[in-house]
């Protein structure tokens, strides 16, 4: 799994890959806090996420809530897979970044990689 945060001119780009569970939750929190602190739009690429458990979900959900309050756009560049979204829905967890247009793929390449394991 990987959590990578890159800074583009107009956005913080967070790329998530693999299983997002309790073992990477602290790392995900740090990356989200850093993205919030940058004060730019937050764009998340989550297509390669293979599992998203409650620990990761509640972090992303809280980040989205705070981004909205601060007027920062929070959106997916690449949404979670249909399967993961289906699983979340079965658990009664509302979709993340719902109603947000998928942002353009701009700046989706790493610049300043902050890789996690």
């Amino acid at each position: 799994m990987e959590i990578a945060l890159n800074q583009a001119n107009d956005a913080s780009l967070l790329r998530l890959e693999g299983a997002m569970d309790i073992s990477v939750a602290a790392e995900l929190k740090a990356a989200l806090l850093e993205a919030m602190a940058a004060g730019k739009a937050i764009r998340v690429s989550a297509e390669a996420v293979t599992e998203l458990d409650v620990s990761a979900y509640q972090l992303l959900w809280a980040a989205e809530r705070e981004a909205k309050r601060s007027g920062l756009p929070f959106a997916f560049t690449r949404r979670l897979s249909k399967e993961i979204e289906g699983l979340l829905a079965n658990q009664g967890l509302e979709p993340l970044a719902a109603g947000q247009e998928s942002a353009k793929n701009q700046g989706d390449k790493p610049m300043d990689s902050r890789a996690g394991s």
Partner: peptide, 15 residues
């Protein structure tokens, strides 16, 4: 019950 991001204990379930 989910607190602000900065206050979240990543290993705790708030849901």
């Amino acid at each position: 019950a989910v607190p602000p991001l900065g206050e979240i204990d990543p290993e705790r379930c708030y849901v």
